[in-house]
Design a protein around this nucleic acid. Structure first.
Lengths: 338, 338
DNA sequence: AATGGTATTGAGAGCGCTCCCAATAAAGCA
DNA sequence: TGCTTTATTGGGAGCGCTCTCAATACCATT
């Protein structure tokens, strides 16, 4: 049977209230008393009951991390693991715990209800990719503190994101700078904000070089290796001399298609990916790609959430983290190395 | 302000107790009353406070899923995402929620305390790879219901696992059956049970063919691509004609090393991996590998935990799921396909 | 009509904690 | 010395729920 505050109080010969104060870092405790109580707590390895605290105080020290489960391709690359890691690290440092919610679309209504009204979560981080995600809408209408991972184009919500537009633009501009004339792209799903943003970056790059957008050189993928493979097959007849692929995973598929077609990389077609997943440096040839600070993204989201939960200001917070072009051999650049 | 039981009771003109009964599926409620209450609950979208329930009933409907964060290489392959998915699906179907704990070794003591005494978790699933994991030991000594993912060689605990020994043995035997004479292996870390088991399977296969174990043909890896690459480089001078690699990710690295050395696969060296990760079928050549039912493993773990939490029997439960050899081109077998 | 049983409901206590307020002790001031 | 102020502590109420037990109503039985 776990110990209670009352037990600790008895052991330390003080009152329940005093123990509670020590536990919560209240200033109004005599230094000597505090020492005594802390000693007991440590000795018996006491852990206050979270449910009771939640009931009494209205806060639990738990935040929810909502991840859309539907997109199973999502698990091919290490995006979510890294995100989780980032969130968790900040949580640990601040005595918060993470509760992971894989939001099955089917049970979404129940999920939303539990998150909002279950009284268990002090705040929520949602990694939503869809533009009209009902969870995001519900949270936005509620008073629950929350932060979105991935910016939202229309809703006025707190968010953190990586600079997808910039990253994609610079990646594409790099290809153009190297003299490529027919730069194609395999995009992500265009109903996802990240997919759109990267596509927009691609368009902006073309525009900045005075080139016009050619629909034949644009293929929509779904982030999966297979869609990269198929996308490249579709592109080949249109003779691109470079391709900006919106995901390393898709770039992997594209590489496979190129290998099958005996196309030389980067001589015939230059390739740039996106994500800098660990394996990208070991592709053949090593993949030029855009590095995103995903762990930091998660950490920033949690940091922002802490801030939102602490203060009661109502202004929304936005944070865009920079991305970085990692030049390797696949783009045909002179500069190489990792 | 969220509604409470009392509010619902008032709206439905019944008592708090009756609402509670309806909420918990108690039989002793008049059908008409139940309908009336359920109607109100649905209408106002009521969600009982989990913390309060936890306090009053001693159960929260939340289970913990503990994953060692230390091993970051872990996130290279989709093992954990799949495991999480399996656990989550069964949870959802049974009105349980998953709380994910990435156990940072540094804060392990705090983690353990919270898990055991926080009063928040009805049960715990631990995916531990290490043999002397302190979390496992602590849980084993506690009374908290828990299930281990990955068998434990010495402790008498509930566990589910895949049949690593069998899988590795059959994979190796397949190579031997094809006439390979010098079958090497790149093992996983030998302080992990899965690593050991697969190595043991390899040994058993050799023995069953009357071949003796040659230390020169055994290299220990750490599950990472790089260690596969390096491992294969180390093996090459000893002229193996086949290699059983304990992980697809490592097999990927091994392939890279073989490609660099201009070794033909499977002609010169046959290769078998382990895991059947999604990309394995798209390696060049497609990788023969061992398929593990990871999603099912997670689901089984949760199912077992439900069982443990429900009944109070004290006998430990064990479940070993079968693995399956997926023959593709890399092992040089005649039969191919997927 | 009186009794017992059964189905259904309501009231009260209490889970372990936080927070408010009152009580006490110690100290400062006129 | 008496009184106010300040630091520290203890006690009580109550968070929203579950669970036990008693109360009620209704029926069948003798």
């Amino acid at each position: 049977m776990p110990l209670t505050l009352e037990d600790i109080a008895k052991m330390a010969s003080v009152s329940r209230s005093t123990v509670s104060r020590v536990l919560n870092g209240d200033e109004n405790v005599n230094e000597e008393t505090r020492k005594k109580v802390e000693e007991v707590i440590r000795r018996v390895n006491f852990q206050p009951n979270i449910a009771a605290r939640g009931l009494a105080a209205g806060r639990t020290g738990i935040i929810g991390l909502v991840i859309p489960a539907g997109v199973s391709a999502i698990f091919t690359d290490p995006y979510f693991p890294q995100l989780i890691q980032g969130v968790t690290s900040v949580c640990n440092a601040n005595d918060y715990s993470v509760m992971l919610w894989l939001a099955e679309p089917m049970q979404e209504r129940r999920t939303i209800r539990q998150i909002l009204y279950g009284g268990l979560l002090d705040g929520v981080i949602v990694s939503s990719m869809l533009i009209d995600d009902p969870i995001v809408l519900a949270l936005h209408e509620s008073h629950k503190p929350f932060v979105l991972v991935g910016r939202h184009p229309t809703l006025d919500v707190n968010y953190v994101d990586v600079d997808n537009i910039y990253g994609a633009r610079e990646a594409t501009r790099h290809l153009l700078r190297l003299g490529r004339q027919r730069v194609a792209t395999i995009t992500g799903p265009l109903n996802m904000i990240a997919g759109r943003d990267r596509y927009q970056g691609y368009c902006e790059a073309l525009e900045s070089f005075g080139q016009s957008l050619q629909q034949a050189l644009v293929v929509e993928g779904d982030f999966s290796e297979l869609s990269g493979y198929l996308g490249m097959k579709k592109l080949l007849p249109h003779r691109p001399d470079a391709v900006f692929v919106a995901t390393d995973t898709m770039a992997m598929g594209a590489l496979r298609a190129l290998r099958e077609a005996n196309v030389r990389i980067p001589d015939d077609i230059a390739l740039v990916g996106y994500d800098d997943m660990p394996m990208a440096s070991q592709f053949n040839p090593p993949l030029t790609t855009v590095r995103q600070p995903i762990v930091k993204l998660g950490a920033s989201a949690m940091q922002m959430l802490l801030d939102v939960m602490q203060r009661s200001e109502t202004h929304t917070r936005h944070l865009i983290l920079p991305t970085e072009l990692v030049v390797r051999a696949s783009c045909g650049s002179i500069q190489g190395g990792d």
